[in-house]
Design a protein around this nucleic acid. Sequence first.
DNA 1: GACCAGCCGTTTTTT
DNA 2: ACGGCTGGTC
Length: 757
Amino acid sequence: MSDLLQGLNPAQRRAVEAISGPVLVLAGPGSGKTRVLTHRIAHLIQTAGVDPLNLLAVTFTNRAAREMRERLTTLVGKGVAMALTVGTFHSLCARFLRRDIVYLERARDFVIYDSDDQERLVRRMLHDLNLDVKQYQPRSILSRISSAKNELVSPTEFSRINRGYRDEVVARCYQRYQVLLREANALDFDDLLVETVRLFEQHPTVLAHYQQRYHYMLVDEYQDTNRVQYVLVQQLAAQRRNLFVVGDEDQSVYGFRGADVRNIRSFEQDYPEAQVILLEQNYRSTQAILDTAQAVISADAGRKHVKQLWTENSAGIHVALYKGYDQEAEAAFVADEIVQLVASGTFTMRDCAVLYRTNAQSRALEEAFSRRGLRYQIIGGIRFWERKEVKDVLAYLRFAANPFDSVSLTRILNWPTRGIGERTEIELARWAAQLGVPLFQALKELDNEHAASPFSARTINILRSFLCLTEELNAACRQLPLVQFIAHLLERVPVRETLVREYKTNEADERWRNVEELSNVANRYSALPLEEQLPTFLEEVALVADVDKLDQMADAVTCITLHQAKGLEYPAVFLVGLEDGLVPHSRSLDQRDQLEEERRLLYVGMTRAKQRLYLCHAGRRMSFGHTATTIRSRFLEDIPPALIKSPMRQRAVAAVPQLGIAGRNSGTATNREVARASVVAMPPTKPSAANTVPARLPQKPRVVTFFAGQRVAHTRFGEGVVVSSRLIDGDEEVTVSFTDRERRLLAELAGLVRVEA
DNA sequence: GACCAGCCGTTTTTT
DNA sequence: ACGGCTGGTC
C-alpha cells in the first residue's frame, strides 16, 4: 500500500486511486481537495507508472499551480514535479500558441493586451468610427465582446444573431476591434483561449499532438469554467477520456466572466461512464463556522447536488456578528479584535484575513491598521503592473519587442513629453491609414523623400528622432540580456527626470521605486536564453494575478476580495461590509441568478475560516463621496440567531488586557457580557514550546453543566450519552456519543437537554 | 503644445 | 475625497 493513501478518508482515497476514465469530484470547502489533486498526480506517477510528461493539470490561479508543484516536489522529487505540465488555462494556452501559432500564420511574438490596453484600443477605435464615447462606453462594449468570445461567437456570427441598433454597433466594434488587435499582433485575454480552440479545430494534427502527449488531464475549480474552457477541455480529453475534474457548485462565483455551472452539472451526461465522488467531510472549519455557512448556502434554492458537509473538528466558539456605526468603526473593531487575537497568543497576524466585496473597501481598513501600527498586505486593487509609470516603461519594452503594437506606440509617443500632441497623433494615424501601413511603418516613411507628409518641419524632426530612438531600442532588445536592456532603456529615456517633473517629490520617488522594482523582477529571467527573456517576461507580467504574489509567510494581516480569497484559508476571518448593496452587490439585486451568486460568494468567504469567523457590517457607509444608511445583508437573515453572537465592544478592556475584568464590570454587566468580556480580556500569553496549550481556562467565570454519563437529547441527532464536557472561551463544548457516532456540540447552541435514564 | 482650473466618475468581482 | 480628464488660456 502506497504511503500516498495514508491518512486519507475513503472518498479521498477513491478519488486518488481512480486510475482511468472520467472522474467528477464534488468537493465541499475544506474537504482536502488540493490534497486529493496532488496525491492523485503522485499516485499516477508512482503507482500507475505514468510519465509526468503525460500529465496536464489546470489550476485556477498561477499561485495554485506553483503550490501544486511545490507539494509535488516534496512527494515525488523536484525533477518529476518540474516535468509535469501545470498552469492556468490562460498561461497554458499562451504556451501552446507560442509553440504552434505558425499554423495561424502569425508571428509568435504576439503581445498580450490587458484591460487597460484593450480600453485604449477601443477608445481610439470609437474615435475612428465617429462614435460617441459617452454613449458607447468602452467598458461596456468590451464586456459584450468578451462574453461573445467566451461563448465562442465570432464577429460574423455576432452580427448575424444580434438584436437592435446597439448590438449592431457592438457587432461593428467587435469586427473592427479584432482587426486592430491582429494589426497590432496582439491577443487579449479571451483571445488566448479562443485562438487555441480555433488552432485545435483547424489543425487536427496540432490537437492530436497534445491529445497524444497528455494521457491524463486534471481540472481544478471546474465550476468556474466558461464555454471556451469547456470546449478546450473536451478537445484535449476527447481521445483518452482520462479527465479528472474537481469542483463545487456552491462555490461558483465567476458567472460574470462567463463561468457556467452547467459545465459541471452536465459532466455526467458528457461522460456517462464517469465516476462521481463526493467529498463531504470538512477538515478546515469548526462546527460552529460550518453550521453558519451551511445555513447561508442552504437558502439557495437553485442547488442541484446538495452535499451534506460535516466535520469532526471541535465545535469552536460562536460566529461573531458585529455592527459598527460606520465603516471607520467597523474597521476599528476589526483592527482592535486582531490586536486582541494576537495578544492572546493563539493567533499571529498572518493567521488573520479581512475579506470584502469591493477593492475600494480596503481603504478604511488600511487607515485603521496603520494607525495601530498593524502590518498588513493588500491583495488586488491597483496592481503593480497596472501602475501608470510601470506601464509606460513596459510600453517601451513591448514596443521594442513588437513594433506592430500600436497601443504601446501611442502610449510612448509623447511620454516623456517631446512635443508631440494629440493633433500630431491623429495626423499620424490618418497618414498611416492613407498609406495602408501600421503606425510605426508610417514613421519610417518620413525618411522617404517623395512621401508628402502632412507635418511641419519641426514635427518631422521630433518624429525622426523618436523613430531613431525606437529603432535603436528595437535592435538593442535583441542583443542585450533583459536586465541590461532595461538599464540601457533607462539611460536613453529620461524616465526619472520625467517622473520628477510630473509629480511631487515624494510621489516621484515612490513611482521611481516602482520602475526600479520592474528591473528587479526582470532579473529573475536572466537564466533563460537571451531571445526568450523579454517575451517570457512580458507574458508573465500580463498573466500574473495579484493573488499569485500573496505572501503567506509575511507576518501581516491579509486584506483581500471575496473572489480572490477563494481557495485560501485562515484561522481567523473577518467579513466586512455585509450590507445590501455590497453583499449582495447593488448591481446583482435585480437578477435572480446573480443574487444567488452573491450568496455563494458569502458562503465562499465564510468557509475560508478555520477557527474564528466575524461577520461585520456598518450602519452607515460612505460611497461615491457621500454617506448613506445601510441595511444589513439579507443573507444574514438566513442564519438562525442561536448560531451567532454579538461581541460587545469593550474599549476599556482592550486598553487593560489583564485579569479582573469580570469583577470590575460585575456591577453593570449581565452575566453574558461578562463571559464575553473575558474572552476579549485574555492576558497576553506568549506561545512557547513548553506551554502549547494556552492557559486560559482558569479565568473563566462559567462552569460546565454536563458531565460524562448523563443521557441527553438533541433535536436532530436524537438521544445520546455525554462522553465529556469542557469550556472553550466561555462556551461549553459537550462530546456526546449518539447511535451513529460521537459528535462535539456547543451546549448552548445545540439546545441539548438532559433526559432521565 | 504646455499649463491650469474645474469637472466628472469612481466601486463589482478577474485572467 | 481624490485623481484623471477636458477644455480653456497663454
